[in-house]
């Protein structure tokens, strides 16, 4: 559990960070909270010659809560997200999910940007952001572009982000749907989900996403459409058709599928109750 040697960079602005990425190419990686990256480095499963720490970059911080949308700086920690009362009032689903991530110590350091950008199927925020129809802002050598969370994830640890791009901001439209729920089954505090479901519902609309049940988060348009019409069975069937869990120490595939359905139904029931 000792990483190989690396150079440590601590740029003060995004432009400098990108130029370090340009200079070192594949050998450089940005680090936010480090909860995914540092274990991989300690296990020597990833070889990083240049570590670019983003924590000194002020423009990556901050939460703006507007009437129509919310923007989160990528370096916003889970604890800051949880502690922001205005945000909690505007999008309570975010807070409900963040409180189910790991433990307080992890949440003081772990960031929203790191959680969504890494492409780890176990992370909670990617599915949540798909459910919320968030947009990620990526800044690279060629400028700034926006990618929908629903288009961002390609495979486990593979995303639409280019090697020289940095995910700087997350923009979330304030959902019109009043009912919300994030339900998660896990073995213990700090574990990834055995199955988790994010549900928004209300006013004839709905959105449904699931976590750690495939190599990417699963947002099912059909499931949302069915739930929008009040068709719970159709919603569940569509979501279950979209997941493809794999066996691990949490259990075999049949178990995960069963639990996924139970968790989704619980999330739907809770969200529908809150929508009333």
């Amino acid at each position: 559990m000792i990483p190989a040697g690396f150079e440590y960079h601590r740029p003060a602005d995004i432009r400098s960070a990108i130029s370090i990425l340009q200079e070192h190419g594949d050998a450089a990686r940005v680090i936010a909270g480090g909860h995914s990256l540092i274990p991989m480095m300690k296990l020597r499963m990833t070889d990083i010659g240049h570590l670019v720490d983003l924590q000194a970059i002020g423009e990556l911080k901050g939460v703006e809560v507007g009437a129509e949308k919310v923007t989160l700086g990528a370096m916003t920690t889970q604890a800051e997200l949880i502690g922001n009362a205005a945000l909690g009032a505007k999008i309570p689903l975010l807070r409900e999910a963040a409180l189910q991530i790991a433990d307080p110590q992890v949440r003081y350091v772990g960031t929203v940007g790191g959680n969504v950008a890494n492409g780890d199927p176990g992370n909670d925020m990617p599915g949540l952001m798909q459910c919320l129809d968030a947009t990620y802002t990526l800044v690279g050598p060629d400028g700034t572009r926006d990618v929908a969370a629903r288009d961002f994830y390609e495979a486990a640890y593979f995303t639409a982000r280019g090697d020289e791009e940095i995910l700087t901001r997350i923009t979330i439209p304030v959902p019109a749907m009043k009912g919300y729920a994030y339900e998660k089954q896990k073995r213990k505090i700090g574990d990834y989900a055995t199955a988790a479901a994010a549900v928004l519902v209300g006013g004839g609309k709905a959105s449904v996403a699931m976590t750690n049940l495939s190599d990417t988060p699963i947002w099912s348009e059909a499931a949302g459409a069915a739930l929008a019409k009040g068709d719970v069975e159709g919603c569940v069937a569509a979501a279950m058709g979209a997941i493809a869990p794999s066996e691990d120490m949490r259990g075999p595939i049949a178990f995960k599928k069963h639990v996924a359905e139970v968790i989704l139904r619980r999330a739907i029931a809770k969200a529908q109750e809150r929508a009333k």
Binding site: Q185, R187, T194, R250, G251, P252, A254, F255, H258, V259
Partner: peptide, 11 residues
């Protein structure tokens, strides 16, 4: 008796 093994008993 972790989650999946208990689930398996019930199954």
């Amino acid at each position: 008796h972790d989650h999946w093994r208990i689930w398996k008993i019930a199954e």
